[in-house]
Amino acid sequence: MEPYLLTDRDEYNYCIQRGYNPLLDLRNFRMDIRLRVEIQRELFGHCITGRGANIMAANERFFRWVWEHKPHRCEETLKPLANYSAVYCSHILTRGAYPEMAHDPRNINILSFECHNRWENGDRERMRIYPENMRLIELMKAEYQQLKLV
């Protein structure tokens, strides 16, 4: 079954009220990229134009939100992670190279410190999460490219 495309705020709110989270539930929902960016900016702040403390506060809101909405286990090893740490939130596409995607929850893996380092600096092609991350990278790049065309 194809995911349902959400195009406006009422559809998004309807899903949230029924316990779904379209920002993360890619199996059941797709979101118009403009709607996605609008909601992400509302929830976490604007990660491109903010400065200093504003960016740090937005990042903290974002990392805590991701931690609250994703399972507390390393996506690579599937081992549980006990307590919140921003270190467990690993960007798939780096914030520096893709600042417009910095606060997109799809762009985050929950990883142990060791696996986070492996994704950042190691042999990511041999990681269990690699194939799904490559699919997400293609999806996100295509969607955010639509914003540049408008």
Rank of each mutant, 00 (worst) to 15 (best):
A102T: 08
R9C: 07
D8M: 02
Q146I: 12
E75A: 14
E143V: 10
T94E: 15
D104S: 14
N21C: 13
A53K: 06
L6P: 07
F44L: 02
H46A: 01
N117P: 06
M134S: 03
G50Q: 04
D8H: 15
A58S: 13
N21M: 11
C47P: 05
C15F: 05
L81E: 03
W119S: 10
R36Q: 11
M134Q: 15
G52T: 11
R9S: 12
T49D: 11
I137W: 00
E125F: 10
L43P: 13
N117Y: 08
E60K: 13
Y98K: 00
L136G: 01
L149E: 01
P105Y: 08
P80S: 07
F29S: 14
E60V: 10
D25G: 08
L147Q: 06
I16E: 03
L139D: 03
P3E: 11
A57I: 12
G45R: 08
A102G: 09
E138V: 06
M134G: 02
K148R: 07
C47T: 05
N13M: 08
H72C: 12
R126D: 06
E100I: 07
L81T: 05
W67N: 02
S112G: 05
M127D: 09
K70A: 06
N21Y: 03
H116F: 01
E138W: 02
E100P: 01
R41L: 04
V66Q: 01
E11G: 14
D8K: 14
W65E: 08
A58D: 00
W67E: 06
F62A: 01
T7Q: 12
A97S: 06
R106F: 14
F29E: 11
R18F: 12
N121H: 15
P3A: 14
R124F: 13
F44M: 01
R18L: 07
P3R: 09
T7C: 15
E132M: 08
I108G: 11
M127H: 05
E125K: 03
N83Y: 02
L43N: 10
F63A: 03
Y20N: 05
R64T: 07
F62M: 09
M31W: 01
H103Q: 09
W119P: 05
V66I: 14
D104C: 13
G96Y: 11
H72S: 11
E100T: 08
R36C: 05
L35M: 13
R128L: 13
Y84N: 05
E120C: 02
L136I: 14
C47M: 07
R64Y: 09
L111V: 09
R61T: 04
C47S: 06
L24Y: 12
R118Q: 10
I33H: 03
E76M: 00
I137A: 05
Y12S: 11
I39L: 04
M31I: 15
V37L: 13
L111C: 14
S112L: 01
I16T: 08
I137L: 01
I16S: 10
N133P: 08
C15Y: 13
M56L: 10
T94Y: 09
